[in-house]
Structure formats: structure tokens, C-alpha cells
Amino acid sequence: MSQYLLSIYQPDGDIPPPAVLDPIMRDVDAVARDAKAAGVWVFSAGLFPSSTATVLRPEGADVLVTDGPFTEGKEHLGGITVIDVPDLDAALEWSRRFAVALTLPVEVRPVSGSG
């Protein structure tokens, strides 16, 4: 088994109203329950908005600390899920299910040293 990080990207801006968000979260919760039942779910976490980020950047012998995201963009990392599956094909299948439920892009990456 190998672990994969599923990074969920969401648009910057306000959180959608409950009429929009509630059905999405219901669908996401259903996929997460299925992943747990299948024994592939390791953990998930949502993130606070990118405006709450702090970036540390090495500058010679010093480290510059700045508020805000590493890069400015129209999207930011909104949450993560780690799954433990046999291979990339299985990771992609679970990622498809999460992407459809979330209606958002999901980036899939193997976790180094997990397999």
C-alpha cells in the first residue's frame, strides 16, 4: 500500500452560502465514509483561508517571515486528504470521487517513503 496526498484547491473569496455548500459537504462526507469503510482513509483536514498563512523564506543566514500566502492566485489550498491505496490507479479513482463531490480540482501526489 502507498499513501497519496489529495490536495483540494478552491477559489479565493467568500465561502458559498449554505444552500450551495450543504449539498456539496453531504456528498464529500459520503465519499469520506466510503473511504473509511474501504480502509483507505488515513486523515483529512480543511484549512483556514490563505490570508491566515505565514510564510518563512530563507534569506542568507536569516529567515524572512511574511503574512499571507506563498503566492498570489485565484485559487488556494483549501484542504487535504491522505489515502492509503495499492497504486496510483486506485488513488486516481478515489480522487475522481472526491473531485466530483467537491466540484473542485484535486491534485494527487504520492507521499514519499510511504510505500
Results as ranks from 00 to 15, higher is better:
Val82Gln: 02
Pro86Val: 01
Ala53Met: 10
Gly78His: 03
Arg96Trp: 03
Pro17Lys: 07
Pro11Thr: 09
Tyr9Met: 13
Gly73Val: 05
Pro11Ser: 12
Pro49Thr: 08
Ala90Pro: 06
Thr52Lys: 14
Asp27Glu: 15
Leu64Asp: 12
Trp94Ser: 02
Leu56Gly: 02
Ala91Ser: 11
Val42Lys: 07
Arg57Ile: 08
Phe98Gln: 07
Ala91Leu: 09
Gly78Arg: 05
Ala19Asp: 15
Ala35His: 04
Glu107His: 01
Ile80Thr: 04
Arg96Lys: 13
Ser51Thr: 15
Phe43Pro: 00
Val108Pro: 06
Gly73Tyr: 10
Asp67Glu: 15
Ala53Trp: 08
Phe43Ile: 02
Asp67Gln: 15
Asp84Leu: 02
Met25Ile: 14
Gly73Ser: 14
Ala101Arg: 09
Leu64Pro: 06
Ala90Val: 01
Pro16Glu: 11
Ala35Cys: 11
Leu88Ala: 12
Ala37Arg: 15
Val82Arg: 02
Leu77Gly: 02
Asp27Leu: 11
Gly115Glu: 09
Thr71Tyr: 10
Pro69Asn: 05
Ala37Tyr: 07
Asp34Cys: 11
Asp87Asn: 15
Leu88Arg: 14
Ile24Phe: 10
Arg57Asn: 12
Val20Asp: 13
Phe43Gln: 03
Pro49Ala: 02
Tyr4Ala: 05
Thr66Asn: 01
Pro49Glu: 09
Val40Cys: 05
Leu92Lys: 14
Val100Ser: 05
Gly46Phe: 04
Gln3Ser: 09
Pro86Trp: 02
Trp41Thr: 00
Glu72Asn: 07
Val108Leu: 03
Pro23Ile: 12
Thr66Gly: 03
Ala32Cys: 00
Ile8Ser: 03
Met25Pro: 01
Pro18Ile: 04
Arg26Ile: 09
Phe48Ile: 00
Arg109Lys: 14
Ala37Asp: 15
Pro18Gln: 00
Leu47Ser: 05
Leu6Pro: 05
Arg33Gln: 15
Ser95Ile: 06
Val65Ser: 13
Ser51Lys: 14
Pro23Gly: 09
Ala32Leu: 09
Ser95Tyr: 05
Asp14Glu: 14
Val65Phe: 01
Gln10Pro: 00
Val55Trp: 03
Ala101Pro: 10
Ala101Gln: 08
Leu92Asp: 01
Leu47Thr: 09
Asp34Val: 05
Leu47Arg: 07
Asp89Asn: 14
Lys36Val: 14
Leu21Ser: 13
Gln3Glu: 12
Asp22Val: 08
Phe70Leu: 14
Ile8Phe: 10
Glu75Cys: 01
Val65Asn: 04
Val40Asp: 00
Thr103Ile: 08
Gly46Leu: 04
Pro17Asp: 08
Gln10His: 11
Gly73Lys: 09
Trp41Asp: 01
Val100Phe: 06
Pro105Lys: 03
Leu6Phe: 08
Leu5Ser: 05
Pro69Ser: 02
Val100Pro: 07
Arg57Gln: 10
